[in-house]
Nucleic acid binder design. Structure first.
Lengths: 110, 110
DNA sequence: TTTTAATACATAAGATTCAGATGTATTTGA
DNA sequence: TCAAATACATCTGAATCTTATGTATTAAAA
């Protein structure tokens, strides 16, 4: 687990990337996928995730569909057309940022 | 310039790295150095920098000395013993975080 | 020569964003 | 059967940053 401040500012990018890879996902699924892929190093809390999903939806970046799994409601999120380009844009920006930071912090390639 | 949220959480790491490289620096100097090294891509605002410097000082990570340049006061910041290890620690943590993100976002090496 | 830009410190108000706590309800597995 | 996992979500508060503002000195340009 990283110190909490590090994750800041990357949540939106992570969520958009996950949805770009998986067509549609529900909230809990996103938290688990990220946890799995990062070997528990990044754990998205629900208190952070849901407000983010809702704000992305409000901005037209995400689309939702509700389904019933038995009696339980499940809310799927997927990228809108706009969301697809937004996702690429965000990932590219982060890649650029990493290069800048790598240089600034003189980090040698792993 | 990156979207503001990206920088979040990295300010402390950047400041500590700058001081590890330069022995002692004053606030304004740090903002300019980072601006120069990143080709204006990262611009630390003073409203963000000074609270950070003060809190690092309060935590015993930084030491200050005040000097007069003409009539103007200049406040130099440098790493304490504890600050030196903290600096390495922070940079290493960020390097690790970048690797995790690179994998998660499937970013190919530049 | 005057006045603008740059240097250099700093604070304060507000926004954003995240963590942690809490809440509800269902379903699976021990 | 009862605990743990699944799945949604909200709310309070803490942390951190942005924008704006303020003071004062010094260098450079008009």
């Amino acid at each position: 687990m990283y110190s909490s401040e590090l994750i800041k500012g990357t949540l939106k990018t992570i969520v958009l990337k996950m949805l770009a890879e998986n067509k549609r996902m529900y909230g809990y699924e996103i938290t688990q996928k990220v946890k799995d892929l990062t070997g528990n190093k990044i754990q998205i809390t629900e208190g952070a995730l849901y407000p983010t999903l809702h704000s992305l939806e409000a901005d037209g970046i995400l689309i939702t569909e509700t389904e019933y799994i038995g009696k339980r409601v499940r809310k799927y999120y997927s990228l809108s057309k706009e969301g697809q380009s937004k996702s690429k844009e965000k990932v590219n920006e982060f890649a650029d940022f990493m290069n800048t930071m790598k240089f600034l912090l003189e980090i040698k390639p792993a």
